[in-house]
Simulated scan of single mutants.
Amino acid sequence: MATDHQIPASKQQQPGTSAFKLIIYEQENFQGRCHELTGPCNNLLEAGVEKVGSILVLCGPWVGYEQANCKGEQYVFEKGEYPRWDSWTNSRRSDTLVAFRPIKVDSQEHKIVLFENPSFAGKKIEIIDDDVPSFHAHGYQEKVSSVRVQSGTWVGYQYPGYRGFQYLFEKGEYKDNAEFGAQIPQIQSVRRIRDMQWHQRGAFHPVN
């Protein structure tokens, strides 16, 4: 759905609306034409969205992709405001968003195991119900080539401090780095994705 700039007058979720709602603005700072999503969109261009300048997430979380059909670099969006592209990424490789889909968060518990080598071999780091801004600080300095998510939904980052490329991990197994969308097997921080059902804040706010 595309409209002219009318929605910002009410940046509030109304009772009875969809469990997932995201509004895309074609210009920065929530200006210009806006487009509402309540479900997956594999190609924003085909849906009439010319450019993503800013994003308002009323109900989430969501994951956005650099390429159509949910391919390319990934960006995780939780409930909140994203006034320009550098508010949702600091990898600085691309400011393009072409596809979106909701992320289902169906567990209050979180457990993830990250392995040095493909097919769940080599050294490993196991994380239970915690966010880890630096693997090095926990004594793990190896690469991450495969991942097993036993519960919860997670996002991994290329560098410490939740920086660099983002990788979404939903419940299941990822036998090599290509399966979670990484060109190289490098993850150095990871955090849980939580929503209002399980966590009162329902959003992640990095500390500068």
Rank of each mutant, 00 (worst) to 15 (best):
A2E: 10
H5M: 11
S10Y: 12
S10N: 14
Q12G: 10
Q13S: 10
I23V: 15
Y25H: 14
E26C: 09
Q31E: 15
R33L: 04
C34E: 15
T38M: 11
C41K: 00
P61L: 06
V63Q: 07
G64F: 07
E66Y: 12
E66F: 07
Q67C: 10
V76E: 00
F77L: 15
Y82V: 11
P83T: 10
S87I: 06
S87G: 04
S87Y: 14
T89F: 05
R93G: 07
T96Q: 11
L97V: 15
I103N: 08
K104T: 13
V105Q: 03
S107K: 12
S107N: 14
E109H: 06
K111N: 12
K111C: 14
I112L: 00
F115P: 02
S119V: 11
F120G: 11
I127Q: 00
I127A: 06
I128D: 05
D129Q: 12
D130P: 00
D131Y: 01
D131W: 06
H136R: 10
G139D: 04
K143Q: 13
T153N: 02
T153Q: 03
Y159N: 07
G161E: 08
E170I: 13
E170P: 06
K171E: 09
K171H: 13
Y174T: 01
Y174V: 02
E179M: 10
G181V: 04
P185M: 01
R192D: 05
I193M: 01
D195H: 12
Q197G: 05
R201Q: 10
R201A: 04
